[in-house]
Amino acid sequence: MNVQQLEQDLPPILLYAVPILILALLIEWLIIRIHPEKDYDGADFRASLGIGIGSLIINALLKSFMLALGIFFYELTPWRIPPTWWSWLVALVVIDFCNYLAHYTAHKQRVWWATHVTHHSSEHLNLSTAFRNSWTQHLKIIFFIPAWLTGVHPVIAFSCYQLDLLYQFWIHTEVIGRLPRWFEFIFVTPSHHRVHHGSNDAYLDKNFGSMLIVWDRLFGTFQEETETPKYGLTKPVESQNVVYLNFHEWRDIWHDLRKTRSLKGAVKVLFGPPV
Rank of each mutant, 00 (worst) to 15 (best):
N2E: 09
V3P: 05
V3K: 01
Q4A: 14
E7V: 14
D9Y: 12
P11T: 02
I13V: 15
L14G: 04
A17K: 02
V18S: 11
P19L: 07
L21H: 11
A24E: 01
A24Y: 14
L25G: 15
L26Q: 13
W29K: 07
L30W: 14
R33H: 11
D41Y: 01
G42D: 01
D44R: 01
D44S: 11
A47T: 07
S48Y: 14
S48C: 09
L49Y: 07
L49P: 08
L49S: 07
I53M: 10
I53D: 03
G54S: 10
S55L: 05
A60P: 10
L61H: 06
K63I: 00
S64I: 06
M66G: 15
L67M: 03
L69N: 08
G70D: 03
F72S: 00
P78H: 05
P78M: 01
W79S: 00
R80Y: 15
P82A: 13
P83S: 10
T84P: 02
L89D: 00
L89E: 03
L92S: 09
L101R: 05
H103F: 09
H103W: 08
Y104P: 00
Y104I: 07
T105W: 14
H107T: 08
Q109Y: 07
Q109P: 04
V111T: 15
W112G: 10
V117Y: 05
T118R: 04
T118N: 02
H119P: 00
H119F: 09
H124M: 07
S128E: 00
A130R: 00
F131W: 03
R132K: 11
K140H: 15
F144C: 00
F144G: 03
L149D: 06
H153N: 10
H153V: 01
P154Q: 10
F158C: 12
C160G: 04
C160P: 02
Y161C: 01
Q162L: 04
L163R: 01
L163T: 11
L166Q: 03
W170M: 11
I171A: 08
V175L: 12
R178F: 15
R178M: 12
L179R: 07
F183Q: 00
E184W: 06
I186C: 12
F187N: 11
V188T: 13
V188I: 14
T189W: 05
H192A: 14
R194Y: 07
V195R: 04
V195S: 06
H196A: 00
H197V: 13
G198F: 11
N207K: 09
F208C: 00
G209F: 09
M211R: 06
L212K: 05
L212H: 14
W215G: 05
F222N: 01
Q223F: 14
T228V: 15
P229M: 04
K230Y: 05
G232C: 13
K235T: 15
P236Y: 10
P236A: 12
E238M: 11
E238K: 15
E238L: 13
Y244I: 07
F247E: 02
H248F: 13
W254G: 13
H255N: 13
H255K: 13
D256S: 07
R258L: 01
R258G: 11
K259Q: 13
K259L: 09
T260I: 04
S262K: 05
L263Y: 06
L270S: 01
F271M: 02
P273M: 04
